[in-house]
Simulated scan of single mutants.
Amino acid sequence: MGEFTAKWGPLMWQALIETFQMTLISLVFSVIIGMALGVLLVLTRPNALFANKFVYNVLNILVNIVRSVPFIILLFFIIPFTKAIVGTIIGVKGVIVPLVVYTSPYIARLMESALLEVDPGVIEAYTAMGVKRRKIVWNVLIREARPAIILGLTIATVSLIGATAMAGLVGAGGLGDLAYRYGHIQYEVEVMYATVFILIILVQGIQSLGNYFASKLKRD
């Protein structure tokens, strides 16, 4: 065990840091874009507060198109766009754009689903009392959906970690790259097992935190 830690410890630590970087940076941008899209999808759908058939249909089709493309294909498909935005297509920096493009529509759908769980009667009641629609969105709709939103973001984060592992196949770094280069190509089985173990711990920890905060918000 000591020999394994001495040999692979620094590389695994560096890979873990890279995975955290990819996940956190991508998640921040994805949450901003995805939540905005999700709110717009709910507010512009037929019979909603800001119903707009054209905007809803455009957003709905756009989200469906991006979600239809597997991440590994999307990664290569938007190479020119990625290079234009960040100037590179390799390393942690080069994979942020594909990760954001991949995750944002997924979060949008999760956000949409969470907001649609809110009882329409509650919204109707506030509307009848003359409360402004903008206040209803922030103080009622999003507030009531907070537990479902937290669970949705938890699922999205776990999915994003999986995507960062796939990104390792194209030189993005992180645990996926470590597992592929050393665990698969060089047949270092211990490295593969250690990488899988770390990913399991990460996913379990994130899911547990998400469940805790969602449960706490639900009780409040």
Rank of each mutant, 00 (worst) to 15 (best):
T23S: 12
T23G: 10
T23I: 00
T23Y: 00
L24T: 10
L24K: 06
L24G: 11
S26I: 03
V31Q: 11
I32P: 03
G34D: 09
G34P: 00
G34W: 00
M35V: 13
A36G: 15
L37G: 00
G38C: 07
L40C: 07
L41H: 06
L41W: 06
V42L: 10
P46H: 05
P46N: 00
N47Q: 14
N47I: 10
A48R: 08
L49G: 00
L49E: 08
A51C: 09
N52I: 02
N52C: 04
K53W: 06
K53E: 11
K53H: 10
F54Q: 04
V55F: 14
N57C: 01
N60A: 06
L62S: 14
V63Y: 11
V63A: 11
N64P: 01
N64S: 15
N64Y: 06
V66F: 14
V66N: 10
S68V: 11
S68N: 10
P70S: 04
I72G: 07
I72V: 15
I72Y: 12
I73M: 13
L74M: 14
L75G: 07
F76T: 15
F77Y: 14
I78H: 08
I79H: 07
I79G: 03
P80M: 09
F81P: 02
F81E: 11
I85T: 14
G87V: 08
T88L: 00
I89W: 05
I90K: 08
V92F: 07
V92M: 11
K93P: 04
K93N: 12
G94R: 03
G94A: 08
G94P: 00
G94M: 02
I96R: 06
V97M: 05
P98L: 06
P98E: 04
V100H: 02
V101Q: 11
